[in-house]
Amino acid sequence: MSLAFNNVLNLNKKNYNGVTIEELSLSGKINIRGKSSDKEFMKNIGSALNLVLPIEPNVRIFNNNISIMWLGPNEWLVITPENEKDGIISLLKSTLNPQKTAITDVSFNRTILRLEGEKVFTLLSKFLVANLEKILKTNFSVAQTIFIKIPVLFVRNNNDEESTSLDLHLNRSHTKYVYELLVDGSKNLNI
């Protein structure tokens, strides 16, 4: 039986002083753990997903449907369309050695807020010490960090020359709190 999950915030895309915030609809999120030094593991994943797992830190790779984010030297997050998730999990489980890998469906644990606009980094810098603009320079970059005491994953969607678009992956239970703080922080962006 599959569970039906709605979005947490149930709000339309809205502009707050130059930053638009929207919650994306549910997508499949699969956490994969295995050793990047294990050639068989890397080869099998590559053949199952048609993508090679990124070994370079803070990087994501993608094709039309699937994105793979680097979370650590031995950990990755795969984002899939919701309707393809179960098929991909079954495929991964049948392909990979269960004693050497862990495949976990974390789709219902997290949600994604999309932040867009020229002042996205200005808004985020109110809450962060590390310079995210430097870390998330290209559209292939991701960064795990703590944002207002909450573990999150930032994903850059576009290049530096364009207006910024970031996806903020976070736990569902923290979403309202983060959203309200972002809206509050955006109030004096035009000053």
Binding site: P73, L128, V129, A130
Partner: peptide, 17 residues
């Protein structure tokens, strides 16, 4: 608050460590 340069991820704030 100070920054620590993780050998894998790069510079992050100390609260993450």
């Amino acid at each position: 608050m100070f920054l620590i340069n993780c050998p894998y991820c790069g510079e992050r704030e100390q609260a993450e460590f």
